[in-house]
Simulated assay, not measured.
Amino acid sequence: MSGAIANLAISLGAMQLARKIPFEDPQVLNYARIGYAATQLILLAVYYYISMIVKKKNDQTVLKYVEPPSALTPQEEGKLVTTTVRDYDLAEVSKLLRSVYMGILMMAFLHGYMKFTQPLFIQSLMGLKGLYDAKPIAIHILGKPAEGELKRPFKAAPGIFGAGGGPQTDKAAISEAEKKVGSKKDD
């Protein structure tokens, strides 16, 4: 099952389960708030720990790939990226942290301003699912080798309809991008 479909299934299941939870009871609501806050703190702590591990390993292996153009500007060509494994992993952890911060902001709006209570429960479960799916966790904490799905640069997870792409790592695409970068410098 793809990640998007699994997320959809978990969300729908959690929504059905959340309907049965009596959030009108102040004690239950406080438990849901504590559970949400604890989940977010766990996420932040794990991502911080991974960044410390990455910095400690200090893997300076060069990583070259061609980043695909954004969906907003498909007529543009991909951009050549040259980085190290350390910097790439830190950038990936930074993306994960940003998603946690955005989730907290959305929850502050939904629960704090709009007074919705069910998203506290649902986002707690989705946060733990995100922790399970995070590729830096699989590599640095679970000790899985960086090959296949975990090979850097990470491929974008396919969407619900199977559309998904990622950086190009083949030699032809990299050499073509290097030629274009070289010709732009000559101009």
Rank of each mutant, 00 (worst) to 15 (best):
M15L: 10
M15T: 04
M15D: 04
Q16C: 12
Q16H: 01
Q16P: 00
L17Y: 07
A18D: 04
R19L: 12
K20N: 10
K20W: 04
F23Y: 07
F23Q: 04
E24V: 04
D25Y: 05
P26F: 11
V28N: 08
L29G: 01
N30G: 06
N30L: 12
Y31H: 08
Y31E: 10
A32T: 02
R33A: 02
R33Y: 03
I34L: 15
G35V: 02
G35R: 02
Y36F: 15
A37F: 01
A38F: 14
T39C: 14
Q40F: 01
I42R: 11
L43D: 07
L43M: 10
L43W: 01
A45M: 12
A45E: 14
Y47D: 13
Y49L: 13
Y49W: 11
S51F: 00
I53R: 12
V54E: 13
V54Y: 09
V54R: 06
V54A: 14
K56L: 12
K56A: 14
N58V: 01
D59Q: 06
D59T: 05
Q60I: 04
Q60K: 15
Q60E: 15
V62I: 15
V62N: 07
L63R: 04
K64I: 03
V66D: 13
V66C: 11
E67C: 07
E67P: 00
P68A: 14
P68W: 07
P69G: 14
S70M: 05
S70T: 14
S70D: 15
S70R: 09
L72W: 07
T73L: 09
P74A: 10
P74S: 11
P74L: 09
Q75L: 09
Q75R: 06
E76D: 15
E77T: 13
G78A: 15
G78H: 10
K79Y: 09
K79G: 05
K79W: 07
L80E: 12
V81N: 12
T83I: 01
T83K: 06
T84G: 11
T84R: 09
T84A: 14
V85P: 10
D87K: 03
Y88S: 08
Y88I: 00
D89Q: 12
D89H: 10
D89V: 00
A91K: 03
V93N: 11
V93I: 13
S94Q: 09
S94L: 06
K95I: 01
K95E: 14
L96N: 03
L96V: 00
L97Y: 04
L97V: 10
R98I: 05
S99Y: 07
V100P: 00
Y101C: 05
I104E: 03
L105K: 06
L105R: 05
L105G: 15
M106E: 06
M107N: 02
M107P: 01
F109I: 08
F109A: 08
L110T: 01
H111Y: 10
H111I: 02
G112T: 02
Y113S: 08
T117R: 03
T117E: 08
Q118L: 11
Q118V: 05
F121I: 02
I122G: 05
I122V: 15
I122F: 05
Q123L: 13
S124K: 01
S124D: 11
L125K: 07
L125F: 12
M126Q: 14
M126R: 10
M126F: 10
G127V: 03
G127I: 02
G127N: 06
L128T: 00
